[in-house]
Amino acid sequence: MNATATTRAEQAQQEITEEFAFLGDWTERYQYLIDLGRQLPPFPDEYKTEAYRVHGCQSMVWLVPSGDASCMHFEAASDSAIVSGLIALVLRVYSDRPAAEILATEPAFIGTIGLAKHLSPTRSNGLAAMLAKLKGYAAAAGGG
């Protein structure tokens, strides 16, 4: 791949980084996360089952995969406003992508926008658990 070719996941991470660069302090950034979470599409109650639950999160989080190795789609929800915002960011980077791209994409935006330093340990653990489950679904779909 030449240096100018970027994946859609990398492009999404760059856009997230640029959006957060416009926000001043972490009060504004948390509010933006909450606003992003509010924009998630409605999540069907029938998906709020143990089978789709992400363990390792302090709040309740559900992650539902669909599609196949050529294009995986994810729906997710949480009972926490900030975690819902994190979900919105994760879905922008990883949903509607080929499984191989999902597996190859590191969540660089977490460090780039300063999330790693500003999330509580329990939220950081939950975010890591969500990413691990998402990548597990991609691996199971034949992404690697």
Rank of each mutant, 00 (worst) to 15 (best):
I34Q: 04
Q14D: 00
K135H: 10
P121L: 05
E75Y: 01
G37I: 07
E46R: 03
C57T: 14
Y47N: 08
R92H: 05
G143E: 02
S80L: 03
V61R: 15
P42I: 01
H55V: 14
A139M: 12
P41Y: 01
L131P: 09
Q13D: 07
L131M: 03
I110H: 04
I113P: 02
F43K: 05
V61F: 10
P98H: 10
T122E: 00
L115S: 06
A139C: 01
R29S: 00
E18L: 14
A141W: 01
E106K: 06
D96C: 09
L127H: 02
A12F: 14
Y52F: 15
E50M: 13
R97Q: 13
S59W: 10
S59M: 11
E19Q: 05
F43C: 06
D96S: 13
R123E: 02
K48T: 09
G24K: 12
E75R: 04
G136N: 12
T27W: 02
V93Y: 05
A3L: 06
L134Y: 02
G56K: 14
M130G: 06
P65T: 12
S70Q: 15
T6M: 10
F43G: 05
A69D: 05
E15G: 00
A88V: 03
L119P: 12
D68G: 11
A12I: 08
L103H: 12
Q31P: 12
E75P: 03
